[in-house]
Design a protein around this nucleic acid. Structure first.
Lengths: 183, 183
DNA sequence: ACGTTATCGAACATGATGTTCGGTATGATT
DNA sequence: AATCATACCGAACATCATGTTCGATAACGT
């Protein structure tokens, strides 16, 4: 890839992230991005067709970065056959998220976070499905899966909203140990 | 309130709901709403300053409708003092949601659903906090609360995504009985 | 050093936004 | 029924964002 392309792409991403910290996705115009990134208007459109495409590309990039190692580890080990706990894998994911703290925070701090969370949940869904216990109590499998991924995602959102003060290990422990109270 | 105001307000809401079923919130213009509702452009702005205000008003209206009875019941009973189960109250809420099925589906079927879910979670948070058990295992209270409201919301979203085929009782049972698998 | 191509910047058509205003019609009040 | 108030209409307007085009310039890869 041409250096110039990479530079402008980076500039656009950087500007976009910076703007996301200030205002909501909906209220950011292409013009804002162009001004902040200090590039020509037509240049933006040479890279992305729309603002939505930019968001999508950015989510994909972050997502791939965050899960690159984790995804690779899937290739080398078949977790569905051994009985290793899922906890260390969850912890692993959280460490990666912490690395990309700034990006993620910017992405999630607005309604556009839904897009990234969609990726995230899809990935978690695959992960958890490797660890699903036998169906119990006549609860549909996809309800259970949705519960597991959804509540883990909620835990992550709580973590980020609290500025990631806790360690990944703590969060995973909370998540693992929290039980529906005995009403 | 003047009948005319009520009429146009209804027309706007109806048009907005209809449009939300067809396209994403972001891509709906005020012009679209005005055309669909068959009202004058300036009339819209006489009612709502922006599209966001409209969404907000609509969420508030639906929310108040859905929870009117439930909220009233809080006034007559102090649940924090007796030991009644939370399950029937959750079921109650789901029945109300089912009544407003169309509205809710339209609202939630897009990124704008976040606004309604925000209301929803705030309400659930108050509800669940009345039933919180003593803090266990050194897990922060607001983590637990976030987990309970978040995972219930996920259950509701799953329910709606599945076109509300299940009965409210079933959903509450799933939610109550689902446990983190023993990893 | 040369050919390629990304960027620039200006210009343009299009369409949405939000406002204004005089005229009309409808509702509330007596 | 008569009257007053006001909500609606619709056209016009300025403003702004969008997405495209194009020739010139600069940076890149080889």
């Amino acid at each position: 890839m041409d250096r110039r392309q990479q530079r402008t792409r980076d500039a656009i991403f950087k500007a976009f992230r910076s703007l996301l910290e200030k205002k909501r996705y909906t209220h950011i115009s292409v013009q804002d991005i162009v001004d902040e990134a200090n590039i020509g208007r037509s240049t933006f459109y040479a890279h992305f067709e729309t603002k939505d495409e930019l968001l999508k590309a950015m989510c994909t990039e972050i997502f791939n970065h965050v899960f690159s190692e984790e995804l690779n580890s899937e290739e080398t080990h078949d977790f569905s056959k051994d009985n290793k706990s899922i906890a260390p894998r969850l912890t692993h994911i959280l460490y990666h998220l912490k690395d990309s703290e700034k990006n993620i925070a910017a992405i999630l701090s607005c309604e556009s976070g839904e897009l990234f969370l969609k990726f995230f949940k899809e990935y978690l869904s695959e992960l958890f499905s490797q660890y699903l216990p036998e169906t119990k109590a006549n609860i549909p499998v996809d309800f259970v899966l949705n519960h597991l991924t959804g509540s883990f995602t909620e835990a992550v959102k709580w973590w980020i909203a609290n500025r990631m003060k806790n360690t990944p290990e703590e969060i995973v422990r909370y998540y693992t140990e929290v039980r529906f109270p005995d009403f």
